[in-house]
């Protein structure tokens, strides 16, 4: 299953990549592959912007606008003006998103 195309905010800076392969390991959607000792993006549309790759790339070769793909969270953030967060703890909002 894929979501909307051409929306993911994933950025890759090949010149900083050392080919360590951590991004391949953490990405749950097989967005990356290694080719000639460098990461390549196989399919950007599979990216769900979880931020795992960017947070674990020690070389700053990846960047992504990390966030929750959750309508309730985004609607709440539009109303309250904050960052969308997956507030499942039940204490503040009724939103029940994960």
């Amino acid at each position: 299953m894929k979501y909307l195309s051409n929306v993911a905010s994933l950025e890759f800076f090949p010149d900083r990549c050392v080919g360590c392969g951590i991004c391949l390991e953490v990405c749950p959607h097989e967005v990356f592959a290694l080719e000639n000792k460098k990461a390549v993006i196989l399919d950007r549309d599979r990216c769900m912007e979880c931020g795992a790759c960017a947070g674990n790339c020690a070389f700053g070769a990846l960047n992504v606008d990390k966030g929750v793909g959750c309508a309730a969270a985004i609607i709440n953030s539009l109303i309250s003006g904050g960052e969308p967060s997956c507030d499942c703890s039940g204490e503040s909002k009724k939103s029940d998103c994960c």
Binding site: M1, S9, P28, C47, M48, E49, C50, V68, G69, A73
Partner: peptide, 18 residues
């Protein structure tokens, strides 16, 4: 609303839909 439960929807996409 089910986008919140899925394993493959990203924030930019949901924003666009909304």
């Amino acid at each position: 609303q089910f986008t919140g439960a899925t394993t493959f929807t990203g924030m930019s996409g949901v924003r666009k839909e909304l």
